[in-house]
Structure formats: C-alpha cells, structure tokens
C-alpha cells in the first residue's frame, strides 16, 4: 500500500499527460481539425490514473465515449491516439474508429465505446476469460453515472457476482449524463449503494484524489486477483467541459462548476509532492514540459501522417 515517490510522480505524469492531450484535442477541435464527436475527460484524470496504476498490460479494461484518459492511463500511446483523432492511417484504428472507438488489444484496452453501458457486460466477459484461464488477470470496467441506469449495469453486475468474476466496476460519477443531472436521473446519491443489491462490496471515494482512488482500486483489484469476485467503486468527480466539444454545458450550475474546479486533482497532487519533498516545483514543471513536447510531437505525427487509402473501407470487416 505504501506508495513510493516514484509511484506518485508516475501518477502526476499520467494525469498531466491526459490533461495536456485533451487540452490540445479541444484546441484542435475548435480549429476544425478533428471530425466527429470528441468527449473530454478533463477534471476526471485522477480516476483513470488511480485505477490503472493497479493494472498490468495483461489486465483488461473497457472504456467509454469519454475514453482518452482511460487509454492513456492504461499505457496507450498519445501519438497513435492523436493520429486516430485525426482519422489518419497511422492511428490506433487506421482511421476507422476515431475518438469514440480507440482500442489497443495488446494493452488489454478493449475499446472506447460509442454505446453507453455496452462495456459493462463486455468487461464481465473479459473477466470470465481471465478466470477461465486462471492466470490471475482481471478486468476493469469504466462507466458513468448515466450508464449505471442502463439495463446492462444490472445484468453485468449480477452475472459477475454469481460467477464470482475478477472484475472491478469503476463508476465515474461526474453527476451528469449529457444534460441530465444525477438528481433527475436516479433517486439515490451514492451509486455504490447498488452493490449491496448484487451481494458485492461497494465503496464511494473522492474521485478527484488520485491516492484515494488508487487505494480503493488496489483493494478491489487484490480481491479480484485473489478470487474474491467483483467490486463496485464509485469515484465522485466532475466533467469540466461540455458533454462533447461544442456543448457549452449551460445546464451546469456555475457555482458547482467553480467548486469542482477548485478540486482539480493535478495541483492537489503537485502540492503534496512538493510538501513531502518528493519533487520541487521545477521538477514538476520539467515533467509538464516533457509531456507538452510529447503531445506536440503527437500532433506533428498526426498531421504528417497519410490519410487512409479509400480502398481500405473494405478491409478489416472479417478476420480471415
């Protein structure tokens, strides 16, 4: 459980990478360079970071339409991601998927997903494969508060529970499904309460505190690896931006938005690192600069990459 300074600095770097990548994506979208829908995760970085720090490349995740953070935290490469956002041939999905469908199966990333709630049973299936093979790997399912109302939530948690599967359900409760705030879409406040209905443990943590998320996920992953079955962790957090780029988010209460901006997970960790003497402000600034350069290089890579060959529309439909 004791986190080393190295761990904490890695958390910092991951969160900054997500933030920088997405801030750049917002800019590029506004400049008309990215087609389609882009859903940003800014403000929620601690959740993906704290969870994925407990996983190896052999573990699986299922992600969502708001997936960039999960992918980066699971080890996804920002250059291949950026190229995919551009729809280039060099992108993760050869330009066929885009932001909402990025996947890297070699890293256990079973895809972002355009269908809300679709990842829940898929994660259950991946967890079944983990258990079936008996190699101690686990699956983690990321999903939102809105997705917790899909029927798939019920079916997935129930099946995972009766089969005692090594899966961790991570509900990123950012309190909105598009414009619909949690108050209006469910009659409870703590989604973790639902775990009891499936006979599995559930806990609520501060999703903007990377250490809190890490600790909870560590325990849930330990249970899963040890054959103790699924858990549900609810990370309370907040999406800073609109639902998708272009949505001004007029339905959000500005006071609430302000209060959540003040809970920004990145400066919170930065201050701790400095207080604990694990890093100086200059050390952190150096990480920021490295990440910035890495993201800038990713943009260059994407821009210089070729478009897919139109003939490739027809490839990859079936495995041969």
């Amino acid at each position: 459980m004791a986190l080393t300074p190295k761990d904490l600095l890695a958390f910092y770097r991951t969160m900054v990478t997500i933030r920088t990548f997405e801030t750049k994506a917002a800019e590029l979208f506004a400049a008309g360079k990215l087609p389609g829908f882009v859903h940003l995760y800014i403000g929620e970085e601690a959740a993906a970071t704290g969870v994925c720090a407990n996983l190896t490349d052999a573990d699986y995740i299922t992600s969502t339409h708001r997936g960039h953070g999960h992918l980066i935290a699971k080890g996804g490469r920002v250059d291949l991601m950026m190229a995919e956002l551009y729809g280039k041939a060099t992108g993760y999905c050869k330009g066929k998927g885009g932001s909402m469908h990025i996947a890297d199966v070699d890293l256990g990333i079973l895809g972002a997903n355009g269908i809300v709630g679709a990842g829940q049973p898929i994660a259950v299936g991946a967890a079944f494969a983990c258990k079936y093979r008996g190699n101690g790997t686990v699956a983690v399912c990321f999903f939102g508060d809105g997705a917790a109302n899909r029927g798939t939530f019920h079916e997935a948690l129930n099946l995972a529970s009766i089969w005692k599967l090594p899966v961790v359900f991570i509900c990123e409760n950012n309190m909105y499904g598009i414009s619909n705030c949690q108050r209006d879409h469910m009659n409870i406040v703590d989604i973790a309460d639902r775990a009891a209905a499936y006979g599995i443990p559930g806990a609520t943590v501060d999703g903007n505190d990377v250490v809190a998320v890490y600790e909870a996920a560590a325990e849930a992953v330990r249970r899963a690896r040890g054959g103790d079955g699924p858990s549900l962790i609810e990370c309370k957090t907040w999406r800073w931006r609109g639902h998708f780029e272009g949505d001004p988010g007029a339905y959000k209460n500005p006071d609430e938005q302000k209060a959540w901006l003040a809970k920004d997970p990145i400066p919170r960790l930065a201050q701790k690192l400095i207080d604990l003497g694990h890093a100086t402000a200059a050390d952190l600034a150096a990480i920021d600069d490295e990440v910035k350069a890495q993201v800038a290089a990713a943009v260059d890579f994407a821009e210089q990459s070729p478009d897919p060959d139109p003939a490739d529309v027809l490839t990859d439909v079936y495995a041969s």
């Binding site: 703590d190 806990a203 325990e219």
Partner: peptide, 11 residues
C-alpha cells in the same frame, strides 16, 4: 448522507 459508504466496505 455520506456515512456508511467509504472504502471500509472494501478493505
């Protein structure tokens, strides 16, 4: 409203 929910349900 927040009592009885924390990580002690897990650990």
């Amino acid at each position: 409203p927040a009592s009885g929910k924390d990580i002690r349900r897990l650990v």
